[in-house]
């Protein structure tokens, strides 16, 4: 069953048709990659999914409910978490505090006036945060200031912050963009581990073909705002239309 279903979505910016009649189904418990050349509309589509942009027409249904018109924080509370191109974390806070925030958000909703309670008394939340940090091998960095970590660690932390919320769908926006080779490999491994251990549904936007083909189970190719083809990675590799639109310039 499709957990996320995009139907007939159109989005125009002035004279530019950024998305034209996009149809896309993300099946539960798969990793679905969306690829395409620059300007294909990948980021626009992602911004529609998280509530940052509202499409001109069409529908986006997540788990039986429309996400259109909802704000980003409401969409997150529905169970969609997002990982950004450059890691978005709370740089002025320690790693454990970074982890506690999504824990509180998951338990208390989008706002709660817990101003007198002490964080130290939140034993359950701290334990949950620490076990998640353990899972991404960051338990030794608990009291570090988040901004003082390496890019790769920031990415891990951001991932952990999303995962600790146990999202139904994890959206990844070029998670390895601008990363060194070793960090890219680490990130791929991390994502693979998460896929197998948690069976989490992922939708990933990516430029790096290496990342796409080692993770994705379904691939949608976007070109000029329209899905060109959707298939398994093996079939995509050899697809003549895809080669023409996109892969012709890249070595696969």
């Amino acid at each position: 069953m499709a957990i996320l279903s995009v139907k007939g979505v159109n989005k125009r910016f002035g004279g530019l048709q950024a998305l034209g009649d996009v149809n896309l189904d993300v099946e539960e418990n798969t990793c679905h990659a969306i690829i395409g050349p620059n300007g294909a509309g990948k980021s626009t589509l992602l911004n529609v999914l998280v509530g940052k942009l509202i499409p001109d027409s069409g529908s986006v249904v997540f788990d039986g409910q429309s996400v259109l018109g909802r704000k980003p924080h409401q969409i997150n509370q529905m169970g969609i978490s997002r990982v950004f191109q450059t890691p978005e974390i709370f740089g002025d806070l320690t790693v454990i505090e970074n982890m506690l925030i999504p824990c509180f958000a998951k338990r208390d909703g989008s706002f709660r006036m817990h101003a007198i309670e002490s964080v130290r008394d939140e034993g359950d939340m701290i334990a949950k945060a620490e076990s998640m940090l353990d899972e991404v091998n960051m338990l030794d960095k608990t009291d570090m200031l988040a901004s003082s970590m390496s890019r790769g660690d920031k990415r891990r932390l951001e991932m952990a912050m999303c995962l600790v919320q146990e999202p139904r769908l994890l959206l990844l926006d070029e998670p390895t963009a601008g990363m060194a080779r070793a960090d890219t490999e680490n990130t791929i491994q991390l994502l693979k581990d998460i896929r197998t251990s948690r069976g989490i549904t992922m939708a990933i936007i990516e430029h790096d073909m290496n990342v796409v083909f080692s993770l994705a189970e379904r691939i949608t190719v976007l070109a000029q705002g329209t899905p060109l083809v959707e298939d398994t990675p093996d079939n995509i590799k050899g697809h003549p239309k895809v080669r023409e639109a996109y892969l012709g310039e890249a070595q696969v």
Partner: peptide
């Protein structure tokens, strides 16, 4: 912690629900 998160990164807060 939430108030310090506001100072640090409101975007991340929004996408954390």
């Amino acid at each position: 912690i939430m108030l310090r998160a506001v100072k640090s990164n409101q975007q991340r807060m929004n996408y954390t629900g």
